[in-house]
């Protein structure tokens, strides 16, 4: 079982709630994925607009919520957003997302570290979305984060694990759970992340924008289970040279 802060998870697949065509498909896909932790964002209420209600079905299905601070441009805004999120959703879990540049949505490491330090001291279980930077991960651990969430590639890009070697270093060194977040575009990307020892993966776009999100959610569920099983089974060593798996005795010769 995966443990993050005070919560344990049987499923190592975390899912997002964004980009689904409607809340019915979202709920069905999340339930099919087996995910027990789902991310949410915050928005300002527009009083002239009909309010959507995606929260109802998530609560009814006993899913744990992970609000993010998307939209925050610096540590102060992220800290404020985290406190609003705790009030709104009644959870001390928070995903810190500080990405000032809308083109690549890459996280600001300095503001993220500042926000994580303050929020950890305030009793939040902090999960920062970060670049796959092993040095930053150690600094985040020192300030008390509950897990680290290095990116595979930019948010929503579906480019897969472009940071694989750095994520491997993070996994080797980390004493908190490592959740690969962002860019996972296919079940094979998720399986790869799990094979190299990630504790979990967070997938949103790849499921939400699939032609059939429910089927894709099942594919991701199976890939994460397979990848984790392969990791715990211990992968064989790699070699450029062939190593025979059949006997080479020359029984056909005279």
């Amino acid at each position: 079982m995966l443990k993050i802060a005070d919560k344990t998870f049987a499923s190592r697949l975390f899912t997002g709630t964004g980009k689904f065509s409607n809340s019915l498909v979202m709920t069905e896909a999340i339930l099919a994925s087996g995910s027990e932790l789902v991310t949410m964002a915050l928005k300002r209420v527009d009083l002239n607009e009909q309010q959507d209600n995606i929260l109802g079905p998530l609560i009814e299905n006993n899913l744990n919520l992970l609000p993010n601070t998307s939209g925050a441009r610096n540590a102060d805004e992220a800290i404020y957003a985290a406190q609003l999120a705790r009030e709104a959703l009644g959870t001390h879990f928070v995903k810190i997302e500080i990405h000032p540049d809308p083109k690549y949505l890459l996280p600001d490491p300095i503001e993220t570290l500042k926000a994580c330090e303050t929020l950890s001291k305030m009793g939040f279980a902090v999960l920062p979305y970060i670049h796959a930077d092993p040095v930053l991960c150690k600094r985040l651990e020192e300030v008390g984060v509950a897990a680290v969430m290095p990116l595979g590639s930019p948010i929503g890009s579906n480019l897969g694990l472009r940071t694989k070697e750095f994520i491997q270093i993070i996994i080797e060194q980390s004493s908190v759970p490592v959740v690969v977040d962002a860019g996972i575009g296919s079940p094979s990307d998720a399986a790869l992340a799990m094979e190299i020892g990630a504790d979990a993966v967070l997938v949103n776009s790849a499921i939400a924008v699939a032609r059939d999100p429910v089927e894709m959610a099942i594919a991701f569920k199976e890939a994460v289970i397979a990848g984790r099983r392969a990791y715990t089974a211990g992968l064989g060593a790699r070699s450029l040279q062939a190593k025979a798996s059949s006997p080479l005795t020359a029984f056909l010769d005279d």
């Binding site: 997002g16 709630t17 964004g18 980009k19 689904f20 809340s23 979202m26 991310t39 949410m40 964002a41 915050l42 928005k43 300002r44 209420v45 309010q51 959507d52 995606i54 929260l55 919520l65 609000p67 993010n68 998307s70 406190q83 609003l84 999120a85 009030e87 709104a88 959703l89 948010i155 929503g156 967070l202 949103n204 776009s205």
Partner: peptide, 27 residues
Amino acid sequence: IISRSQWVFCQLNHGDEITLIKATAGG
């Protein structure tokens, strides 16, 4: 931030700026 249990006790004043947020879909 005003917690839900305090809404009833919070008197508003002229010029107050209220921020109202809601959880929504996101990744």
